[in-house]
Computed example of a mutant assay.
Amino acid sequence: MSTPNGTEEFEAHRSLLFTVAYEMLSSAADAEDVVQESWLQWADVDQREVHSPRAFLIRIVTRQALNRMRTLSRLREKYVGQWLPEPLLTTPDVANDVALADSVSIAMLTVLETLGPTERAVFVLREVFAVPYDEIAEALDKTPATVRQIAHRARRHVAARRPRTRVTRAEQEEVVERFLVAIRTGDVDALLTVLAPDVVAVGDGGGLAPAARRPLEGAKRVADALAAVGRYDGLVVHATWVNGAPAVRIDLDGQPVGVASVQVAGGRITGIYGIANPEKLTRLDRETLLAT
Rank of each mutant, 00 (worst) to 15 (best):
M1P: 13
M1T: 15
T3E: 13
P4A: 05
N5H: 08
T7Q: 13
D33N: 12
E37C: 02
L40G: 07
H51D: 14
S52Y: 11
P53H: 08
R54V: 05
A55E: 04
L57Y: 08
I58K: 05
M69F: 03
S73Q: 11
V80C: 06
E86A: 04
E86V: 06
N96E: 06
V98C: 03
S103H: 06
E113Q: 15
T114H: 13
F123L: 05
A130L: 11
D134Q: 09
I136M: 02
A137C: 03
T146W: 12
A154R: 12
R155P: 07
A160F: 00
P163N: 15
A170G: 04
E171S: 09
Q172L: 09
V175Q: 01
F179P: 05
V181R: 15
T185E: 13
T185Y: 05
T185G: 00
G186H: 05
A196N: 05
V199L: 02
V200G: 06
D204N: 14
A209R: 14
R213A: 15
K220H: 11
R221E: 09
A223L: 01
A223M: 09
V229A: 10
G230Q: 01
H238E: 12
A239V: 04
A245H: 14
A247M: 07
V248A: 14
R249N: 06
A260P: 04
V264S: 07
G267R: 01
R268P: 01
G271L: 14
A276P: 04
L281E: 00
E287L: 10
L289C: 06
